[in-house]
């Protein structure tokens, strides 16, 4: 196949992926309360409306708080886990890795029901901290994968050198390992943040009736009919995800983070 044909194939698929978002972005510009394409009477009215209506601002704040805390918790669990597993091969190390990877590999509804019953039994059902902890555990996999990747790339001779010069464990960690790991911790945090922001089923089953997050709010609003404000929220969410991943791509090595070994910076 020629190069042009390959590029066309890739571009057509990307265009298909973007098509629904383009329609939604256009629909969000409708002046009246209707979803028409092409938009009628285009204006940015609904963008302003979003930030004036507390019924949307409260879920937005919930979502941001939950995502920020849950991603931090995920990193706080993943970092020691990755460090512990790094140089160990025993059954404990393998069991820990398995537990770190499992929540993400299973259909999320399973974890969601598990968390729901757990918090009902313990009494955190319907509280925001229950959502934060549940998301944090569910998303541990992402920072675990990125941090492990970072550890794999660390040159052992650097650590040896620091040790020979008299650095203890803590010294080696603080001056050699941590600085090299920070980019991987940041991208792990960012992955977890974006996924928590967009997560529905766990947030819904753990505290959906009291702590409304933005995806829950959108789904509830859909039942009462489609309004341009839904399109506005969708556009903002898509833009936010693209921005965060774009930043990772700009300042980090995204192909390597996702498992490619050959790709180098141009």
């Amino acid at each position: 196949m020629t190069r042009a044909l390959k590029t066309t194939y890739v571009l057509v698929i990307l265009a298909l992926l973007l098509a629904p978002l383009v329609i939604v972005a256009a629909v969000s510009l409708n002046g009246p309360q209707s979803l028409r394409f092409p938009p009628v009477d285009p204006s940015l009215r609904w963008y302003g409306e979003l930030f004036r209506q507390s019924e949307w601002l409260v879920p937005l704040r919930h979502s941001l708080v939950i995502a920020a805390c849950a991603a931090a918790l995920a990193v706080a669990i993943a970092l020691p886990l990755a460090l512990y597993v790094w140089e160990r091969r025993g059954i404990a190390a393998r069991a820990l890795t398995g537990m770190g990877l499992a929540p993400f590999a299973l259909p999320p509804v399973i974890s969601a029901l598990g968390f729901m019953i757990f918090w009902m039994t313990l009494g955190g059902y319907g509280r925001i901290y229950a959502t934060i902890i549940s998301h944090g555990i569910f998303l541990v996999t992402l920072p675990l994968v990125t941090i492990s990747l970072g550890l794999k790339g660390i040159d052992r001779s650097l650590i040896e050198a620091a040790r020979v010069m008299g650095a203890g464990r803590w010294g080696v960690f603080r001056t050699v390992i941590l600085p090299l790991l920070i980019p991987y911790m940041v991208s792990g945090y960012a992955f977890a943040f974006v996924l928590s922001l967009n997560e529905y089923i766990i947030a819904y089953m753990v505290a959906g009736f009291t702590v409304e997050t933005l995806p829950i709010k959108i789904f509830n609003a859909l039942r009462y009919g489609y309004t341009p404000i839904l399109a506005v929220v969708s556009v903002i969410f898509a833009a936010l995800s693209a921005l965060i991943f774009g930043l990772i791509g700009r300042f980090g090595n995204l192909p390597r983070l996702l498992g490619a070994e050959r790709s180098q910076h141009d």
């Binding site: 997560e199 959108i218 789904f219 859909l222 489609y226 969708s234």
Partner: peptide, 12 residues
């Protein structure tokens, strides 16, 4: 696209 909430994809 992968991170987008299912609710947004469904709506779009």
């Amino acid at each position: 696209a992968l991170a987008l909430s299912e609710v947004i994809i469904g709506f779009s």
